[in-house]
Design a protein around this nucleic acid. Structure first.
Lengths: 191, 191
DNA sequence: GAGTCAAATATTATCGATAATCGGTCAAAG
DNA sequence: CTTTGACCGATTATCGATAATATTTGACTC
């Protein structure tokens, strides 16, 4: 699935097959997989579309993500000292991207930061699930909608690093969770 | 996927196609879906197998499930009064099944209890994710391995009902989470 | 212009065929 | 006896065809 596809766009099997120089059947197989992942939705005899994520669903995704990342941070804090340098490097890269106004690079480093924590949790099921949420959202972190500037956003990651590096699981949990909720579309959750 | 399949069992496309009076292609599509859900694993040119869930993965699933159900209970507690009767009915049915020594029925009512809470959270993403975990585990609640008898297990759900019915989100969260961890294979988590 | 209907076209869903791959068996060689 | 290579059957992966379904187009009427 290459660029320039928007929620709601049609995915025509024979056309994709032609573009990929293959036949229809493998395309159907791939679409079934994407459907199971929640990226695509299909109706019988009507074909596949990029699934539309409603604002409500996006908010729900953020709420669940906050819980998962909070837990991941708590687990990661057990090995916080080993993760510290890597996390700080991500923040430094975010700062650099922020100064250059490069929001694409910023988003990449931001994602790498969060992934490092979830990977550092050591729970593979948690990581798979977190990735599933990201695939669903497609725009992994919605930077454009954030009410903060990129410099502030980069800095907002530091309390998470500190809590994890200090091995403080409970603080890491709350800090990471709140960070996600702070960046949720339409502001914070009541939860 | 009808009964009597164990982790590691081969799923032969042409055989399944014959049994279902269809052709290979729809079977391959279905297997792709099951693979995306983590139920099946395939290797290229080697076919599909029912995925083996290791003990470690099962423990990780329980840890993540504890977090999700803890959060679900917290959200459900907002509307706890409305959920109380339904939850109590599930516990009553669990008691009844426990008295009759009917562990299949027990498992069904136990699942219905937990599902009612996750549904009561009002977060559809959370529900989908929780269902995904259950599909992965396949044995939804591992009753046979629990160190408690069924009567005690039925009763162990009451503190969750009480916290939710009282609208106490934080208590519901901790109670539900601990309940899942208490029933995790090989005992509790350090987390 | 709007609405209806029929025909044409596009697309989906499945079929059966075929090429490629893999694993097991057996015979020959060392 | 062990190892190696050839062959065969089972299975996977994809192909191209076809039937079924949905959508679009064009003609006609008001």
């Amino acid at each position: 699935m290459t660029g320039a596809l928007k929620p709601g766009d049609r995915l025509v099997e024979l056309k994709i097959a032609g573009e990929m120089a293959t036949s229809q059947a493998p395309v159907r197989e791939a679409l079934r997989e994407l459907e199971a992942m929640g990226v695509v939705e299909t109706l019988r005899n009507k074909g596949a579309r990029v699934r539309v994520i409603s604002d409500e669903e996006l908010r729900q995704i953020y709420d669940v993500r906050a819980q998962l990342e909070g837990y991941a941070s708590e687990l990661a804090a057990r090995n916080g000292a080993a993760l510290k340098a890597g996390l700080e490097a991500c923040v430094a890269k975010m700062r650099k991207a922020a100064r250059k106004g490069d929001s694409m690079a910023f988003a990449d480093h931001n994602m790498a930061f969060h992934r490092a924590i979830v990977e550092g949790s050591g729970n593979r099921v948690l990581l798979d699930m977190w990735e599933t949420l990201n695939v669903k959202m497609r725009t992994m972190v919605n930077v454009a909608r954030s009410s903060r500037n990129l410099i502030d956003l980069a800095e907002s990651h530091l309390p998470i690093v500190e809590a994890i590096a200090a091995g403080d699981g409970a603080l890491a949990h709350e800090t990471a969770k709140q960070h996600v909720l702070d960046n949720k579309p339409d502001g914070g959750s009541v939860s």
